[in-house]
Design a protein around this nucleic acid. Sequence first.
RNA 1: GGGGCUGUAGUAGAGUCGGUUACAACGCCGGCCUGUCACGCCGGAGGUCGCGGGUUCGAGUCCCGUCAGCCCCGCCA
Length: 592
Amino acid sequence: MGDWKRSHYCGDISAADIGREVCLMGWVQRRRDHGGLIFIDLRDREGISQLALDPDRDPAAHSKAEQVRNEFVLAARGVVSARPEGTVNAKMKTGEVEVEVRELRILNSAQTPPFMIDEFTEVAENIRLKHRYLDLRRAPLQRNLILRHLASKTVRRHLDDQGFIEIETPVLTKSTPEGARDYLVPSRVTPGTFFALPQSPQLFKQLLMVSGFDRYYQIVKCFRDEDLRADRQPEFTQIDCELSFVDRDQIIGIMESMIAEVFKATLNLEISLPMPRLSCAEAMTRFGVDNPDLRFDLELVELSNQVEKSGFKVFADVVAKGGIVKGLNAKGCSGLSRKEIDDLTEFVKIYGAKGLAYVKVQEDGSWQSPIAKFFTAEEIAAIDRALQAAPGDLLLFVADSFRIANESLGRLRGHLGNKLGLIGEGVYRFAWITDFPLLEWDQESRRHVAVHHPFTAPVEEDLALLDSDPGKVRAQAYDLVLNGSEIGGGSIRIHDQQTQKKMFSLLGIDAEEAEEKFGFLLSALEYGAPPHGGIAFGLDRLVMILTGSDSIRDVIAFPKTQKATCLLSGAPDQVDSKQLRELSIRTARPPQ
RNA sequence: GGGGCUGUAGUAGAGUCGGUUACAACGCCGGCCUGUCACGCCGGAGGUCGCGGGUUCGAGUCCCGUCAGCCCCGCCA
């Protein structure tokens, strides 16, 4: 660069700078060589400016420009000038002006990149990931990561304003039972033992409350060794918060105003507060899932009463055995083809449903359906009434256990919302989901498991039920759902040792194991633990929604593939046998 | 662990019923061009059809396996 100093970002020069001498540095987006005149579009993170090189005016700069290729790194000194009449480019932010280059320096050359650094070229994701540093040069990912920064910055400012203190917690910590599979790190100093990477800083932030920090937050990496999805990476970032001497509503109030500020700062959107709330039970009843997408209706209706005495054995038997029948009215969809309905049937089978019954409501209001013949006129009228059926509608039914009927039809609801175009662009619908059950019976392990986590406090008036009917106990837990995606969740925590011990025992963790795995927490609870609670938001998911991304990978600088590998660095990889010896590690199976 | 989709020049695609030398575009290289802006025109180079096996006189195409990427189920307190 010599003694040259950049004066402006490429995207930042405008008509106000006409006549000014500038120095730009950036990458060659494009060179247009007219034999005489050469134009170069120079790009940096803020945008693109056109360099004009005239052989008559500056022959030295012009001849240097002849060697330039895409993605070369240039420094250009010159004068901002108005483009001649008729050559203004209205599509460009800087399209009114150009830089008449007086001096040009090639700061670095570049190989032809494996794909074009532009917005027009679609590239397979494995190639993008292998050359991630080039993909990150492209405008969409630049935009996403800059917006992510803006979101983080807003969160920090808001929480600081609210008296939160940012405190770091260990990344090398202790593996504890419950929850996701841990990533483990062997200890060299204590052979045969392992650290775990945190699934969340849960216990440490509670200990910080015991320490009296009162309001803590951290934007922090968390690690879960589970299979990946479009919205799940093995390492992800949480906005992690914990507060003392507050109740659920205070936490919700602080957090929803934080989220509203993030929307204001990133999308310039006003979110109306307070955000709506739904009990978990109501969400299940109306939408079949505990993370409903509220951007469209298509509500589910339970029809067990209407069909339990019907001649349609599939429905009647399910109800007789304690299951339920639920229906949903796909308004105006009676025109769906047999193939399309078969596809919907396949869709619900993914979630364990055995089938999908359907009714097309004809012009005269009568049913066209394989199951119509099993129902009396009264039953048909009752079902029509419950579903508010009208000519042209398509009624869909699933009969199964409570869990499967709700989940399969609830997922189908989401699928139809997309397929039928019921979801408007730029619409954001929040809901706090509250009153989750504390515990859930797990068939496989024949025990109760925590719905949220083992440190969640029961609703006070349900405390007595802990002994008599633990499945009925509600938790002081809450999730924030946005457009059908869970973007955050938290709870009021247990702050007395006796309740915490009882909770462990309900989860089938005996006193000895509780002491071994969670002894440090149990001890801390004895030394004046304040009432406290908190929440954690998935920053990646939030930014995914803010940027309209289909994949979490598009909001993470260096993401992993579905097989949890990094195509850029080649991680994970074998290590030197000396490293393994030092760690007292021997592998049972060679890598394939 | 399971279900599904995809894989053809650097990139993204076409390739019919199995049949000659695998196409055109963008990019790349060379030439021409003094107001373009995803510049234009002319010419050129570039292929282990993911990999392995099988069927066949003959496979990019059919079959089996395998690898990789993606979507989903399970899993994710």
